[in-house]
């Protein structure tokens, strides 16, 4: 199965943002946008939900902290108790620093690997879809022509005020654009 996509290319982030809002007002479905940098406010303009990766980070952090505290307690008080400075074997204050470091380590790695997993980023992955200059200075808005009433001419008309550089139709096999 293949999919017809309409690509609108811009040279400035403001044009992209404004046309994104305009198209959404006219009920067009925006598949994705491709930009050379993180455009402030684009997530709102595209209507993206806040990422749930924060939860991954929090959970990994909690696992790191609690897991390490338990391990330290087991090591210091059960497996091989050693008297250090006359302190009790299960001294909480001296277990905090390492537990904290472990929490940060796990939370950091957890969220980065979750990002790579969710966004399907891995070494040697082929770049799909390929656009010219999108990592340099081009801003591309991708619309899916799935709707029966989709009218490229109307899109062109809508986008004209926003310094549209080029409108291109592309047919890709399904899954070409990660959604």
């Amino acid at each position: 199965m293949s999919e017809r996509l309409l690509l609108a290319k811009f040279g400035h982030e403001d044009d992209l943002l404004a046309s994104c809002k305009e198209l959404r007002r006219h009920d067009y479905k925006i598949v994705d946008a491709f930009t050379p940098y993180a455009v402030h406010g684009l997530d709102r303009a595209m209507g993206l939900e806040p990422s749930r990766l924060t939860w991954v980070c929090f959970l990994c952090g909690m696992i790191g902290a609690i897991g390490m505290l338990i391990f330290e307690y087991w090591v210091g008080a059960i497996s091989w108790p050693v008297d250090v400075g006359g302190k009790p074997w299960n001294s909480l204050p001296s277990n905090v620093p390492v537990a904290f470091e472990t929490a940060v380590l796990l939370a950091g790695f957890g969220s980065v690997f979750a990002l790579f997993g969710v966004s399907r980023l891995y070494p040697g992955k082929a770049v799909r879809p390929e656009f010219d200059r999108v990592t340099d200075d081009r801003f591309i808005l991708v619309l899916a022509e799935t709707d029966a009433r989709f009218d490229p001419a109307e899109v062109k008309h809508l986008l004209r005020p926003f310094n549209l550089l080029e409108l291109e139709e592309r047919v890709v096999s399904a899954g070409g654009v990660p959604s």
């Binding site: 994705d32 946008a33 930009t35 993206l48 770049v127 999108v134 990660p178």
Partner: peptide
């Protein structure tokens, strides 16, 4: 890592 500048990825990346 096959980075393509997708706004969805940027959103999570941010």
């Amino acid at each position: 890592l096959g980075w393509n500048g997708s706004a969805r990825t940027w959103h999570r990346y941010e």
